[in-house]
Design a protein around this nucleic acid. Structure first.
Length: 307
RNA sequence: GCCGGGGUAGCUCAGUUGGUAGAGCAGCGGACUGAAAAUCCGCGUGUGGGCAGUUCAAUUCUGUCCCCCGGCA
């Protein structure tokens, strides 16, 4: 399979379709936001026209009020990869969510789902006592993991505490258990663009989204699910439009915030993918080189099977 | 022209009873095991508007000039 990563706006969809012009590609989403049904435009999902050019899986199927954890994603993606491979198609994972790629390729600790009341309990305690106090508490039960995370990192502190309470085992105990990595060899490709070149693209894309009806999309989504805390609303663009529709910020402020947050996100994605030395990097317009690279990887893989 | 407020980091500002300054945001770098478009961490030399004066020492006090904002003319 091929894993196509890179920051938002770098042209992953176009590169995937270029591959689809040469190989029997099935595109599988690897983006935590493009799974949402109510935000096809704002999360930059492939258009219906684009989806018509080859099979596309795991896009736009989740309602706004539901969340898709990395483990559940990895299961869905692994099943899709297996099915498409069996059909003789080349699975091309496309997305910008580093944790999803990691969970899929390297596996993820087999931790059971946490009952919602336990999560809510730690959320409440964190609000009341603060993350530093809970970090100290965590250090008493799981010093190894507490040492790895910062006392301000409430999200990770709460996750570790709820796993510990719900399973009776420390978070780091779970991490030490064997994980199920993907059996498929991955050809990792990363699109890369200097921030100075990416910036105007991101700026322009927001304007295009607004012109194409992003406000209307958010209004419709608001009728289905008005809760700004719902998982689907936490996407960049979604949250800003929600605030604007609620009258909390002007459209101009919305635009500015949307761009600022998108840019910061692209930087975080670069940091994540830069750390992976197995990724072969290309500029977005190097489609021919990308095709050659994938062809070579496929020949190597099939040769390896024979020999 | 007069009266008041102000000129300090890229931006918005704080502070220094005189010992040459620090927050937020932005920017840059990093971490990342089920919310990950999330959640966090690290990085701060800037002619303190210009010039002069007082002082051992001025961003701080004094004078003067320049610029911005509000009011009065």
């Amino acid at each position: 399979m091929v894993c196509l990563s890179g920051p938002t706006g770098a042209g992953k969809t176009a590169a995937a379709l270029a591959l689809a012009g040469v190989f029997p590609v099935s595109v599988i989403n690897a983006d935590s936001r493009q799974v949402y049904r109510d935000f096809p435009l704002i999360t930059a999902q492939p258009s219906p026209e684009e989806r018509g050019r080859c099979p596309h899986l795991l896009y736009g199927f989740l309602p706004t009020e539901e969340k898709l954890g990395a483990g559940e994603y990895a299961r869905l993606a692994a099943a899709a990869i297996r099915e498409e491979s069996e059909k003789g198609r080349l699975p091309v994972l496309v997305g910008g969510t580093g944790l999803y790629f990691k969970a899929l390729l390297e596996g993820i600790a087999p931790i059971p789902d946490i009952p919602p009341d336990i999560s809510a309990h730690w959320q409440k305690r964190c609000d009341e006592e603060g993350s530093v106090a809970l970090h100290a508490l965590l250090a008493g039960h799981d010093p190894a993991y507490a040492a790895k995370i910062h006392p301000n990192d409430r999200q990770r502190i709460m996750r570790a505490l709820e796993v510990w309470q719900a399973t009776g085992k420390p978070f780091s105990w779970w991490h030490a258990r064997p994980m199920e990595a993907s059996p498929h060899a991955a050809c990792k490709i990363g699109l890369e663009l200097p921030m100075a070149e990416l910036e105007p693209i991101l700026q322009r894309r927001i304007e295009l989204m607004l012109r194409a009806g992003a406000l209307e999309e958010a209004e419709t989504a608001l009728k289905r699910c008005a809760d700004p805390e719902a998982p689907g609303w936490s996407g960049i663009g979604c949250a800003e439009l929600h605030a604007h529709l609620g009258g909390r910020i002007s459209l101009e402020e919305c635009r500015a915030l949307w761009f600022k947050n998108t840019r910061a996100y692209a930087k975080r994605q670069n940091t994540w993918f830069r750390a992976d030395r197995d990724i072969r990097r290309f500029r977005p317009e190097e489609t021919e080189a990308i095709v050659r690279h994938v062809r070579a990887a496929r020949e190597y893989a099939s040769g390896g099977q024979r020999g």
